[in-house]
Design a protein around this nucleic acid. Sequence first.
DNA 1: AAAATTAATGTATAAATTACATTTATTACC
DNA 2: GGTAATAAATGTAATTTATACATTAATTTT
Lengths: 234, 234
Amino acid sequence: MAVETKDFYVQQDKMYVATDCIIFGFDAGKLKLLIFKRRVEPLMGEWSLIGSFVKIDEDVDEAAKRILTEITGLENVFMEELKTYGATNRDPGARCISIGQYALIRIEDYDKELVEKHGAIWYDLDEIPNLVLDHNQMVQDALGRLRRKARYQPIGFELLPEKFTIPQLQQLYEAIYQNELDARNFRKKVLSYNVLIKLDEKDKSSSRRGAFLYKFDDINYQKLRKSGYNFEIS
Amino acid sequence: MAVETKDFYVQQDKMYVATDCIIFGFDAGKLKLLIFKRRVEPLMGEWSLIGSFVKIDEDVDEAAKRILTEITGLENVFMEELKTYGATNRDPGARCISIGQYALIRIEDYDKELVEKHGAIWYDLDEIPNLVLDHNQMVQDALGRLRRKARYQPIGFELLPEKFTIPQLQQLYEAIYQNELDARNFRKKVLSYNVLIKLDEKDKSSSRRGAFLYKFDDINYQKLRKSGYNFEIS
DNA sequence: AAAATTAATGTATAAATTACATTTATTACC
DNA sequence: GGTAATAAATGTAATTTATACATTAATTTT
């Protein structure tokens, strides 16, 4: 049996498997989400996360990577499964479960032409419009996950340029947690883990004095983890 | 196209969606896992988690609940999605993704006849045999999740009888974390959250003196959460 | 009544977190 | 060239939280 939904046919007795990407970025002190206006039916013109069906010969996480690369040109991006959205009624057109996966990208790195070509746009997280299906729920869930995870794992660095200043790092955490942090205590805390490498360069884009740039030290972070400690910022 | 695998046919071009349950219990100071010996082909006689295909008219989480009830007779059990197992090659018979879901049950409550009828058995976690497909990985992942989650959410109580003693609670945490805890500090800590109701009864099964029984106080726990605190045991 | 056994309790020390104000480096402007 | 403006960088004392550790209490069994 098949049923027409606008311009394509789906089998009503078939279970479809899709994946949707919740793509976060960080720019100008704000968390951003990459969404796009659907250019095909059904729901053409509506805002949506970026997703796709999982191909029969493709791992689920490969599917998400494929989508992310198609839209942003980026590879080797931090991406993690969020959860499955598996309600029977979540998609009115067909029985389709979707595996939500969230990604953290360095917003300066993505391919702007490619993104534009797909009709994708960065939105401030607090200005996300209505999205199709259960996509707003996915965004909320992903944000919750990001908030919890950022407390005990240094995933925030995935959202910053390779070189960043401590004030920028603090801004990021303030954006994630939605509250202000004390600059002295914050600096003391992050430096205490010994996972930041101080560079000789300064970033002068936001002050006359300039702030020293740092890099994340993955080797020392692995040592820290092995010794049973976590990178914890609260 | 269809391919025969022992006694049933699967379509090679069809994506199957299953769910598997990682069912934890706690008994005699040890964490246990409920597994069963498959009674049908393929892989008859092999140890396996308990799972099933997700029906076309069934939510994914409903499918897991259905399975759990079929095997244990239990309803209203703590159950949470773990992750999706979606590698193309995870199931040699067909393209089948599985959504792992872990459950915490009170081991005294389950229906023993029903469990036996299904050939299911409780195994000590450190004695789990080889399981079919990627099921051992699922168990490891679920255990990791349980360990992380138990640190900041009071899910441990799902594994204890409704009435429990503080030494029992401590034993549970020791089993989860695999290390010993100081009885004075542990008691001080859990009582500090004010989410345990002390009863007038004692449990004398493990000492002459007997230990007071407590109940978890969900109302106070909700208040605690609203005030921004967590139940944290480390 | 004595022995055996686990439950229950308190305190002092160390470690971590919090609150808080001044100086420094640099550029822009007069 | 000096002054104003601006964000970066720094230290300490007070409070809270975590840790280490030994004795007494309640009850049953013999």
